[in-house]
Amino acid sequence: MTIDQATVRKIASLARIAISDAEAAAMEGELNGILGWVEQLGEVDVTGVEPMTAVIPNTLRLRDDVIDADPLTGGNRRDDVLANAPAAMHGFFGVPKVIE
């Protein structure tokens, strides 16, 4: 499977990365090189093989329903949450106006 520049642009758009025509052209070659190489995986007979779900045998732990049980994963820290915001406004994150 090879991808063309239109596909490169489509992927870039899905990934929300602006690219110039020159970048799209360069990436076309690079991505095809990498994808062509990973496609050798198709040779492997995986009949009856389950995809890996947990690399080390371990089960999903569930936590108790307690508010702010650990301050590191709890709320009431708006200042910390907004501290690095490029546009913190009146306790909100500001973004360019969105039209829904």
Binding site: R63, V66, L72, T73, G74, G75, R77, R78
Partner: peptide
């Protein structure tokens, strides 16, 4: 996360990292 779910709180107060 362990942030609260109550309705009507001040903006971004019930937000954890």
């Amino acid at each position: 996360s362990s942030a609260a779910t109550a309705f009507g709180a001040e903006p971004n107060t019930q937000v954890s990292l």
